[in-house]
């Protein structure tokens, strides 16, 4: 009995060391997932972010059709990389709407002229308030919102080319 107890501190030390090594070696995940998945999209009404494209309100989301809500900004570099994928998703018939975070109309217009405009509507979120209401913490992020206005899925970071079929399928499923 006494002989076994003698080894206990060493065993505990090795276990602690193994746990800490595992914690350090495990890839760090800084993504903060929204806890709003499965809940109704927050209610909001945003003015148009650029002239010529309508603004966005929560009522537009709960109109019986699923939408892809893209939270983006003209000053966000990964958003440029994401633009072709959004275009492909919009070309497949998915209604894509945008929430432009902290953006200026002129800057946004240049962004759309250069990268194309897949958005049916873009709301201006000047102080990130609607972004927070969605539980989003960065740009770009995309939310699948179903026809009843319920949030079904969140994509953190740009939608990559290989993600496009999955996103289209997720929006189609979210009737």
């Amino acid at each position: 009995m006494k002989g076994q107890v003698k080894w206990l501190p060493l065993i505990l030390f090795i276990l602690l060391g193994a746990a800490l090594t595992y914690g350090l070696a495990k890839p760090d995940n800084h993504n903060i997932t929204s806890k709003m998945i499965g809940a109704s999209a927050p209610s909001f009404a945003l003015r148009p972010a650029v002239p010529g494209v309508p603004g966005l309100a929560s009522a537009d989301l709960a109109n019986g059709k699923p939408h892809l809500v893209n939270i983006f900004a003209s000053w966000c570099v990964p958003c440029v990389a994401e633009a072709p994928q959004l275009k492909a998703i919009a070309d497949a018939g998915v209604p894509v709407v945008g929430i432009a975070v902290r953006d200026r109309p002129e800057a946004l217009q240049r962004f759309l002229a250069r990268n194309g405009n897949p958005f049916r509507a873009i709301g201006a979120d000047d102080a990130s308030q609607v972004q927070m209401a969605f539980g989003s913490s960065g740009v770009p992020e995309s939310f699948v919102v179903d026809g009843k206005g319920m949030i079904r899925q969140q994509t953190i970071g740009p939608i990559n080319p290989e993600d496009v079929p999955g996103v289209i399928a997720a929006v189609r499923e979210a009737k």
């Binding site: 903060i32 997932t33 929204s34 806890k35 709003m36 927070m132 209401a133 969605f134 913490s137």
Partner: peptide
């Protein structure tokens, strides 16, 4: 309100 969106984190 914030915890509802981002978790207790």
């Amino acid at each position: 309100w914030l915890v509802r969106r981002y978790g207790a984190w």
